[in-house]
């Protein structure tokens, strides 16, 4: 045991000092020229990656929001279109119905008018025809009478006949 430690410092102090010096110099050099920039670069990159991820996430959310909005808008637009169409259709039907009923009423009125006109015209025509027939009849009767009464005898005869008839009655 004693032998083992004999001259320990003489033989090995040098190595210990060299090792310590070498290690500390290495530590300082690496810390300054390697670890500092490397760690900084790694954490910088990690941060930028994290940032990028966050941004991507945000963009995704924004995108989703926009899509949602678009969909909403589209839905609304579609609903509005449907509404408008429906209204238009209703309006059309209404207009058609109104037109129909108006036409019906108007037609009926016109028919009525026409009938009235026709009737009045008919009445006029009838009276006209009657007048003409009457005139014609009178003219015919006049002509006949004139012819018959061209000679006196016939006239007398007629008077006699008429009187006879009256007598009989």
């Amino acid at each position: 045991m004693e032998q083992l430690f004999e001259g320990l410092l003489n033989d090995h102090l040098g190595f210990v000092v060299w090792a310590a010096v070498a290690f500390i110099i290495l530590l300082i050099l690496l810390a300054k020229f390697a670890w500092k920039p490397i760690m900084a670069a790694i954490s910088e990159r990690e941060r930028s990656i994290e940032d990028a991820l966050l941004k991507a996430e945000a963009a995704k959310e924004e995108m989703a929001r926009l899509t949602n909005e678009n969909e909403q808008l589209l839905k609304e637009a579609r609903a509005e279109r449907d509404l408008i169409l429906r209204e238009a259709r209703q309006l059309k039907d209404q207009i058609i119905n109104e037109a129909k009923s108006a036409a019906n009423v108007e037609g009926a009125r016109m028919i009525e008018n026409a009938r009235l006109e026709i009737n009045s015209l008919k009445a006029v025509a009838m009276s006209d025809v009657k007048n003409q027939v009457a005139t014609l009849s009178v003219e015919i009767a006049e002509k006949i009478l004139r012819k018959q009464f061209a000679d006196q005898q016939a006239q007398d005869q007629l008077v006699a006949d008429l009187l006879k008839e009256v007598k009989i009655k």
């Binding site: 102090l13 040098g14 190595f15 290690f23 110099i25 690496l30 390697a34 490397i38």
Partner: peptide, 27 residues
């Protein structure tokens, strides 16, 4: 007191140099 540059001292310096070169390049 023996402060010789022994095999292990030299090997240690060599290792240190290799490390320094590697990490300096990487940095």
């Amino acid at each position: 007191y023996d402060f010789s540059i022994t095999k292990n001292v030299l090997a240690m310096w060599l290792a240190g140099t290799i490390l320094f070169i590697i990490f300096f390049t990487v940095a």
